[in-house]
Design a protein around this nucleic acid. Structure first.
Lengths: 191, 191
DNA sequence: TCTTTTTAATTGAACGATCAATTAACAAAA
DNA sequence: TTTTGTTAATTGATCGTTCAATTAAAAAGA
């Protein structure tokens, strides 16, 4: 029963943030969406904050799982394929829904003054960067790989941010933008 | 006295968001930082919300003024210089301080469920894009200019977002990243 | 199999804290 | 004196948390 309820409450949390925004999300809006009483949140998560942290962990895990699934489909020496796996995962349908974008942005903002959320966010940002850099090192000089990895990471986050504010990401256009950046940068080899 | 107090309260608002985060910013934390009583906020801004809107307008105006100042220094037909003016303005010292980054991110998150803030944000995002596109059209085919403008806009926002979450932007590195993107894209003319 | 006991899950009302807004009173300037 | 600026206390609403009480489920005993 415990894992069922926890999942149910996390889903309700994401739904509430989508509908009302984080700052209008209360334990009442969450518990009402989950169809349970408000008291149960403290019972399973130790409080509202614990639930928010668990919800962010859930999103991060979902992103990580999607990336691993994409990565498993490309061979280890297919560097360009590994970069594309990062892009595909980040612009997966699940991650680019208006609800997901809103929630990510809300958590990012909250992380600025909530140490545990900041920690989670930092780990994720670092992993994104290091995944990109590792793959790019097979295609470019180390210093160049570092720069392009930072560029791609910023491009991904920027597209996401602008998408969140506009109410949705055009995933095709987003991927085209990143793929174009990568293609232009790989020409560097020849120059 | 009115313009003085308004400016004083807006500054205190930005300071409070920097120190406590938007969601822990109350009319008390603001008025204490400004050294006045809390009631004065309603007197000058009609309420907390009015003050938040005015603060966001203040930031937007500051950005716009910086851009205009930079733009005035380049000739109309210096397309690359006009693009650089956008970059210089966005990565100006005033806009890239930890406090400014935090505040921008907080307002972006808030704008998702506050129509007036969303409107202000949208106007700004559109202007950034159209400034870039107009300049790039002198250097690239229209369709290409549109794509590169979107790429640069996303890159700028992405660098900003990642900087906010890491506690500060390295402006030199940020500009180098964007300048590199632009340089790579301008090679397109020849291919 | 049928009670009895124990454990786990859940509720919802009550509580204290905190918020934005209001207001009546006060001070300073004109 | 009249207007403008400002304060400090108060109001009503809302928040997250807590907890005693209730229900459902499982285990144990007869």
């Amino acid at each position: 029963m415990q894992p069922l309820r926890r999942r149910q409450l996390i889903d309700a949390t994401l739904a509430s943030i989508d509908q009302h925004g984080l700052h209008n999300t209360t334990i009442v809006t969450i518990s009402r969406l989950a169809g349970v009483s408000s008291g149960i949140i403290s019972h399973y998560f130790g409080g509202k904050n614990g639930l928010l942290e668990a919800s962010m962990r859930h999103l991060l895990k979902e992103l990580g799982d999607t990336y691993k699934a994409r990565l498993a489909k490309v061979s280890t020496d297919d560097a360009e394929g590994r970069v594309m796996a990062v892009l595909e995962a980040n612009f997966d349908r699940v991650q680019t829904s208006p609800a997901a974008c809103k929630t990510w942005l809300a958590f990012w903002a909250e992380a600025m003054h909530q140490p545990e959320l900041a920690r989670l966010q930092k780990v994720n940002a670092q992993r994104l960067l290091s995944n990109l850099r590792a793959a790019l090192k097979q295609l470019l000089p180390a210093a160049r790989a570092q720069l392009v990895a930072q560029g791609l990471a910023a491009l991904i986050d920027g597209v996401w941010l602008r998408g969140a504010l506009e109410g949705g990401i055009d995933t095709q256009q987003a991927k085209a933008l990143c793929r174009d950046y990568l293609a232009q940068q790989l020409k560097y080899k020849d120059s």
